[in-house]
Structures are given as C-alpha cells and as structure tokens.
Amino acid sequence: MRRQLAARLAQSLIVVIIVTTISFFVIRSAPGDPFSYESTTITPAIRDHWREQFGYNRPLPVQFIRYVTSVAHGELGYSFQMHEPVAVALAAAVPRTLLLTGLALGLSFLFGIIIGVLQATHRDGWFDRVTSAVLLFFYSLPDFWAALMILLLFAYWWPVLPAGNIVDPVMHDYMGGWEALVDRLRHLALPVLSFTLLTMAGITRYQRAAMIETLPMDFIRTARAKGLSERRIVWRHALRTALTPMVALLGLMLPALLGGALFIEKVFAWPGMGLLAAGAVAARDYDLVTATVIAGSVMVVIGSFFADLLHMAIDPRVRE
C-alpha cells in the first residue's frame, strides 16, 4: 500500500515534468511573441531590443532551461496586465477557482449520483426518459452560452441575484458578519448553479450506466436472497460498487472541468484563474498564460492523484 502510494506519487511528478515541457514548447511554437503585436509606433529595432532584454532571441532549449530554473525558484514571470508578479496574481486567483470548482463538483456528484441511481432503478420509466432528455440538453450546451443565458435570466430579466464578482464591490466592507456571508453566497449562487447544471449532466449519464451494469450482478441477487430491503440493496450494495467507475471519471474530467471554470469565471466576472487567463488575451500577457497552463495542469495532476487515493479507499481490489 505504502509502496503503491510512493509509485503513484513518483508517476505524478514525472507527469508534472512532462506537462511543463510540453506546455512550454507548444506555447513557444506559436507564431509570434509578446512583442510582435501590430503597432505603428514601435520600430523593429525596439522590438529586437525587447527580445534581447527578455531572452526571446535565444535558442528554445536555452529559454526552456532559463524558464525551468526560474520556476524552480518560485518565479513565474511578470504580469503586464496585473502589474504584479505572476506568482502573486495566481496565488490570489487559484483559491477562488478552487472554491467555485470544488463547490460545483461536489454538488454535481451529489445530484448526479442520486439522479443516475434513480434513472437506473426506474429504467425506461417516465423519470428516466424526462431527466435523460433534459440532461442530454444540458450536456450539449456550450458552457459560456448556458452561463450567459442564466445570467440574462436571473440577473437582468428577473434581477434576483448579482451579475458578477465574488462580493459586492462597494458595500461588502461595511457589512456585518452574517450579512457579509449572505453577500458571498448570493454572489456564488449563479456561477455555481450554471457550473453544476453543466457538470452534472455527464456525471449522471455515467452513474446511470454504472448502475445499470451493476444491478443485474450476482451479488445483488445474493443481497435480495439475504432478505434486504430494496432500498438497502440499491443504495448500499449496488451504489457502493457502482461508485468505483465514478472515481475514475473524476480523474478524467478534471482538465475539462478547469476549461469549463474558465468560461464560467469569464461570464460571471469571478476573479479566478480562468478570468486571469481570459484577460491575458488582450494584454498579450505571455508569462501569465504560460503559468496558467502549467498551474492548471499541475492542479489536474494533483487532483487525479487524490482521485486515485479515493479509488483505493473505495475499492479494496485495487489496494494491493
């Protein structure tokens, strides 16, 4: 068990190294650099001077070594957009992204599992048909468009909730403890709702399939022969077994989840990592986008490591 953990940790480290390498070279291979934007006032000489200054004219491998060295020292570069070191900007943004994503993920799994189980136990009944159709619809919505529509609905046409930001930018500092908490929750509501609806759809489909696979198994019949109630059979015996593939799914969906978070953050002006990356586009904030890709990938690697731990906890068969 301990050896297994160590091996898995080593594997994660290797993946982090690979990810960093891939990201660096892929991004650098894009035509253009931070100074190649169109401008009438900047002469080629000035551009070359900048390139020289920031090291962009050196061979790629040399640039890579310089980059890795500075990353190892905790320096991720400077953000033109935020006017602060990238590390500082990311340190503020990552926890916000984690909060939003974590909440949405938790709720998605909770509702997705419940609905998926009910669909499987009432297979082809009206509940299964209706929820499957509705969820396939959500599954097909582009993240940003769904978020925009929810924003339109609940923040403009029927303005019950704030349109963006994590707290009320003006009033929050003057609020008492309870009031401040409510303010935070109200700002969380729309992004979390949108994100949950979108994420839940895939999880439900998966849970339904896993349950449909589990219910005809022999040990379910054994459970019936033991005289257990149907509820106990479904929610204890079948679900515990059918949760195993769900943990695998959790590991697989993390990259897409961060992608989704980006659009949700952009629409609801939620100042997390995604909004940072989206904002970097206009500013050509080169160091920032590179760091975001690597940070996002590292978050995925860490997340799948924990997903694997969870897998071990939930399935005794993979423990040895």
């Binding site: 022999d218 054994t222 068969r317």
Partner: peptide, 20 residues
C-alpha cells in the same frame, strides 16, 4: 429470505459483493 429460507448460489466468485 435469509432467515427461514436461505440460498447458496453457484458462483462464489460473483455471489459476494467485492467492496465489503
């Protein structure tokens, strides 16, 4: 079931729940 009348199934491989 399981109290007054019980059953022993054919496949001991699959008749037991793998996660308990």
């Amino acid at each position: 079931r399981g109290a007054r009348m019980a059953m022993v199934f054919q496949e001991p491989m699959t008749a037991l729940n793998p996660v308990f």
